[in-house]
Design a protein around this nucleic acid. Sequence first.
DNA 1: AGCCAGGACAAGT
DNA 2: ACTTGTCATGGC
Length: 294
Amino acid sequence: MNDDTGFQPAYTVSGTDLVLRRPPCFDLAATLDCGQAFRFHPLPDGSWQGVVFGRVLRLSAQKNGDIVLHQVNEREFHRRLKRYFTLDLDYPRLLRRLEADPVLRRAVKAVPGLRLLRQELWETVCSFIISQNNNIPRIKGIIRRLCKAFGDPLEAGEYAFPPAARIAALEEQQLSCIRAGFRAKYILDAARKLAAGQIDQSFLQNASYEQARAALMEIRGVGPKVADCVLLFSCGRFEAFPMDVWMRRVTAALYPGGLPACFDGYGGIAQQYLFAYARAGGLDAECKGPGRGA
DNA sequence: AGCCAGGACAAGT
DNA sequence: ACTTGTCATGGC
């Protein structure tokens, strides 16, 4: 359970808010809208709102670099949100190591505020099952319909992510309203296995990478890539390196001889920067011309 | 209109 | 162990 890496983020309490004091490497848009989480959206005032741990969470960036977690007390911060935002990891120190690789240095420069989240297990499994052979706008739509149809209503028009046990009790046909297509049966199998405790979070965090990955792949619809997404985006297994079409292009074009040694143990975090960099067009620049170097 | 999407599965080599 | 067609749906 405890995978805290020991770094102590600076914060102060301001009324009912918790203020992160100039947290390094933390841009809200880059972090919440990079394809690792699907439930955050910007509000007209520029703040971001989403649902985590069954509650509505709103965050806003201040001009001085502080980030405000609205309606969050110290207890909840230390209990859940510090880990969620990976604020226990010394990002500047890690980046100094990863940036020994010149390609990654350019990728980080393109999205310096991209930060890994460690999201809730069931939500992450379900979300990345939905992500297969799909595009991000529609992934968000399916998840939105899932929450609205089966999640508890919260404030501000938001809905909680429905518990695995609740989805496990459904028939496949009852999921047709979320329009997940062929993934509906996969969602049900995942819900059943998580509700039954067959997939255990502490095991995924503490077992060997190979064992943890194999356990997730027992779920129908969870292959190597989705398993790695869960290990990285929920379990904090920084060594997991989700290989999708974009990362195949990146590795083929920029790392034909394999990943650099400075990624060891933290390939997943490097992957996040490379993924964002490639999608932002950085791969074209690396290859000095149009096309994607395939 | 048609291509493709942060893949996985099953059947075929 | 590797390749190929198929799977629902809809965003762009």
